[in-house]
């Protein structure tokens, strides 16, 4: 299991240093494969460094969207298509202003997986039917060592939404997102 802010550098796949990888291929079947490889790379990279968001408002300069060794950058249009694919798979959602597609939340683990993880932790700790704050879940001492410790607030909210829709949780709105309260049921 990778701890947050892992010190070991991410191992890029071989294709990352192949210049045509950063050009959107006109051949449809080549592009499908290329897009699949990009999706894989983004999810792996984001999971490794526990990152959550992509901003497309300005050209990307950082890995994994740019490679300084071969001085290539994935153009924003191609990146949008890649994120569209991630959204279709359920591994990302567009956030930000409507229809602009300039920001997205990467869900390298799907919300229902987070949800069951949280529920399992709570039932093991005997915290069911107890009101907890979201702050307690992400930053509390009890969750240190759990995978969802330090989880991004937006992602956590999506996981809790899943639990609520399953009837396993009830949310209590607070003054801010941090103050959001949740009560988990069996």
């Amino acid at each position: 299991m990778t701890s947050p802010g892992s010190a070991t550098p991410f191992q890029f796949p071989e294709i990352y240093s192949f210049p045509p990888f950063f050009t959107r291929q006109p051949n449809e079947s080549t592009w499908r494969e290329q897009r699949r490889q990009w999706c894989e790379l983004i999810l792996a990279y984001y999971r490794h460094y526990r990152l959550y968001s992509i901003s497309l408002t300005e050209p990307a300069r950082e890995p994994p969207f740019a490679n300084r060794q071969v001085s290539r950058v994935l153009p924003a249009d191609a990146l949008r298509e890649v994120v569209d694919e991630l959204v279709k798979q359920g591994n990302a959602v567009w956030t930000g202003a409507k229809n602009t597609k300039d920001a997205c939340l990467v869900l390298w683990r799907k919300p229902d997986v987070w949800a069951s993880m949280i529920h399992q932790w709570a039932s093991e700790r005997g915290l069911l039917s107890t009101v907890l704050t979201v702050f307690e879940l992400t930053s509390g001492d009890d969750t240190v060592g759990q995978e969802f410790h330090d989880l991004d607030a937006a992602t956590m909210r999506r996981a809790l939404d899943v639990l609520q829709s399953q009837g396993k949780a009830q949310l209590f709105a607070g003054s801010s997102d941090e103050d959001l309260g949740v009560k988990l049921f069996a």
């Binding site: 291929q25 006109p26 051949n27 080549t30």
Partner: peptide, 12 residues
Amino acid sequence: AERAGHVCRDEG
């Protein structure tokens, strides 16, 4: 050759 999928392009 590109349409046949044998080569891919790099627009630099």
